[in-house]
Amino acid sequence: MMTLLSRIWLLLSHKSFLWLLLFVNLSGTVYGYDWYKWQLVITEPKYWIFVPDSPTASLFFTLAIIGWLINRNFKLIEALALITLVKYGLWAVVMNLLTLIETGSIGWVGWMLITSHFAMAVQAILYIPFYKFGFGHITLAAIWTLHNDVIDYIFGQMPIYSNLMKYSNQIGYFTFWLSIACIAIAYFVWRERTQTPISS
């Protein structure tokens, strides 16, 4: 008899569901880049690629889904998707909750951002069995992720939360360790998939 988890996995891995997930992530990516449009206007062009963090994370996942739909694994993209989706998904949840604590209200948009970004992190974890990245891909994704932190918190290109900017040093410290944790997740996913069982 098929277990509940087996039924859920059959749903998640079905091509029809993957097409739906592709549409949702592509729509969220477009919306996210539009969301950052005002910050890009006041940003030097050389930093543009580093500013819209969450939309770029969902773009990586969108590309990974396209790969799965055509029976291919874009391994570097998968590593980037896992690390950045979990990182920026959880980061945005924390930032909006801090805004709630700081101001007392975040409105329906803030709650929408919390829900959608938490879903970003969850989907990255749910699709762990699909990932085929190697250690080299994790290394490149880690360099991208940590370099992005440097651009955000040393060169001052972090996403602007007007009520939280006075805490930018603390946020930068938190973000660095969140990056390390997400890179570690990718590493353990790879290790679990590749480790050879010890024979007795």
Rank of each mutant, 00 (worst) to 15 (best):
K132W: 03
N25V: 13
T43F: 10
W91R: 09
K46P: 12
F130C: 02
V94Q: 09
R191I: 01
D53M: 06
T84N: 09
M120Y: 03
F155W: 15
S200W: 07
T84I: 02
I65W: 13
G67P: 01
W48L: 11
T145W: 05
T3S: 14
L40P: 06
T196A: 10
Q39W: 04
W177S: 03
S199H: 10
V109F: 13
H117G: 12
A119P: 01
L20W: 11
P129F: 13
L80R: 00
F74S: 03
T62V: 01
V51D: 03
A186L: 00
N169A: 15
A124R: 00
M112S: 08
I180K: 00
R191P: 06
K87S: 07
K75M: 05
V150Q: 09
Q170C: 09
W68F: 15
L63E: 15
G172W: 07
T194I: 10
L10R: 13
M112W: 12
F188K: 08
I183K: 02
L100T: 04
A184D: 13
V86I: 14
I65Y: 15
S168I: 08
I42L: 04
D152H: 15
L178I: 05
S13F: 12
T3H: 14
V86L: 05
A181D: 08
P129A: 05
I183A: 05
I66V: 15
S54I: 12
W38Q: 08
A81D: 00
